[in-house]
Design a binder for these strands. Structure first.
Lengths: 191, 191
DNA sequence: TTGATTATATATCAAAACGATATATATCAA
DNA sequence: TTGATATATATCGTTTTGATATATAATCAA
């Protein structure tokens, strides 16, 4: 499922402009499991328009470019359903926060704490974000995904709050770290 | 933190070839929060070599191309520490499974169940993968990330198993779905 | 035993995606 | 009043991806 498919998915929820689709990905219903930038959204919309999967209505605005509102066509809905009927590829995740915590021993204690607290906040805010949307009348799939997100975010935040001492107790310059580093070197060379 | 930085990170754990680095991303310690393909790993290693961040030892092999083993230099370690000292960007996640479950009402019941059961298996297998590695002697950061992964994967699998009826009870063609779709259209147009 | 599959290795490249940038007014908070 | 943010349309250089190339070794199932 590429960015074009996801734009079709967004437009299956409601008609939207490129800017609004970006907001749906970034802050809206998709924000916890999908994102794409303007660099791919606008080309995708142009391609979908050329292929007849969407139609476009331009609304003149004062002091701004005309707003282009895209709507899903029947052809587009069929294409979306076809994509949804395939098997999903594995999740793709890239987390700089987890990567930095993984290398916690190479960070200063202050930086380590900063990243950890920010990451906890990220999940707490994510929960509030999800809870801030009234679930009444939402389709079952969306409710399910909402509940999944909450479960995962709460588990992550709870684990990190309960285990922060494990990470914050690292002494960057002590013998234990060096011993651990030497153990890693030895383990690596054993291969 | 781009692919070059992550290659430096991988080499901080042990010397490795491009192929081994890919395995570390795909199946090893990074597999739950970072991945990259050969298409970016080999160019990254070549750039790091040119920049003096790594050195390279070629080991001749019978019947195969020579194995190129890369090692981190002091310059490379400094560059890695510098990258780790920055603030992380937000996590980037792209999940086709969650996207498909989100649009559950557009799927057949059989396909919905297939995706759901596969996704539960993905997390259960992920837990077994993590638990299959002996944590003894691992640095605190790595232990912390290991625990976080377990907490998140278990929460996800548990939630989905406990709530699968919510998703599997969707009747694709019934009035409820149409009513929900109409509600969505009305909600969308209210904007 | 044999054929299929997977593992081990090095890579490249066309296509897709990203993030910064361009342009410019409206709105808001200090 | 000023700086930051929001609302809009986009593009483009850079990065990344996924398929592909090449080829033998090892493993596995029939």
């Amino acid at each position: 499922m590429d960015v074009k498919s996801l734009c079709l998915g967004a437009l299956s929820l409601k008609d939207a402009s490129g800017y609004e689709i970006k907001k749906m990905f970034e802050e809206g219903p998709f924000s916890h499991f999908y994102d794409a930038g303007y660099g791919s959204i606008y080309p995708a919309l142009n391609k979908l328009l050329a292929d007849g999967f969407v139609t476009c209505t331009e609304i003149e605005q004062e002091g701004r470019p005309a707003k282009k509102v895209y709507s899903l066509t029947e052809t587009g809905l069929s294409s979306l359903k076809e994509d949804l009927n395939k098997l999903p590829v594995l999740d793709k995740t890239r987390s700089e926060s987890i990567t930095m915590l993984f290398f916690g021993h190479l960070l200063s204690p202050k930086h380590r704490e900063e990243i950890l607290e920010s990451y906890i906040d990220y999940f707490r805010n994510g929960c509030e974000c999800i809870e801030g949307v009234d679930p009444t009348g939402q389709p079952a799939g969306r409710l399910f995904v909402r509940g999944l997100g909450l479960a995962v975010y709460e588990a992550a935040a709870n684990y990190m709050e309960e285990n922060k001492d494990l990470l914050l107790s690292i002494d960057e310059e002590n013998d234990e770290t060096e011993k651990q580093n030497n153990l890693l070197v030895e383990t690596g060379d054993a291969a």
